[in-house]
């Protein structure tokens, strides 16, 4: 499974919504349940699923889902 598909599953799990289809341009504005609280939950879930740890700057710089995928690939050595 590629990063995007796996990340999509994490999104569905965290936001408890089986209809979510992530896109590169997607941001927190596109998902109702995506607030500061669930954001923390999302980051932990991604760290757990991809077995990596993000730094302060990395998390702060994230602008959209596409960048999130790139970051994960870089951290896990897929890029």
């Amino acid at each position: 499974m590629d990063t995007k598909a796996k990340l999509n599953e994490v999104f569905r799990d965290v936001f408890d919504d089986e209809t979510i289809e992530i896109t590169d341009e997607m941001t927190a504005d596109d998902i109702d349940a995506w607030d500061s609280l669930t954001h923390v939950q999302l980051v932990v879930a991604v760290e757990e699923a991809f077995k990596c740890k993000f730094s302060t700057v990395e998390v702060m710089k994230l602008k959209n889902v596409g960048e999130f995928i790139k970051l994960i690939d870089r951290k896990t050595g897929n890029a």
Partner: peptide
């Protein structure tokens, strides 16, 4: 327990 599992269960509760 894994934290994402806990948060999921906690939210469901």
């Amino acid at each position: 327990e894994s934290v994402s599992k806990l948060l999921k269960m906690a939210n469901a509760l």
